[in-house]
Amino acid sequence: MKWLELLSVAGATLIAAMTVVVLYALGVRLTAIAGDIRNSPASWTRPLAYACFAVCGAAVLFGLYLIVPYFHK
């Protein structure tokens, strides 16, 4: 039985999904903060939100890299 492979798949899934979700959620939160009207938000919130989304975009590109066999032969 390939228990080790099973564990590594479970671990990789957990880490990858959590990373993407945490970053994206931070991005969403920062966007919401940056969009506040009542208390004027700090100027760094919006760029930071975009940075979070950009890292998520990189994660998607890495996913593409994994899917397309041409890249890792």
Binding site: K2, E5, L6, S8, V9, A12, T13, L14, A16, A17, V20, V21, Y24, A25, V28, G63, L66, I67
Partner: peptide
């Protein structure tokens, strides 16, 4: 939406991990 995003990210990660770490799901 937040829930759907979490579900989709988990699905994508699980599929990619399983096809590259040798335990097909």
């Amino acid at each position: 939406p937040a829930q759907g995003f979490a579900a989709e990210s988990s699905t994508a990660s699980a599929i990619l991990a399983s096809s590259h770490l040798g335990f097909a799901l």
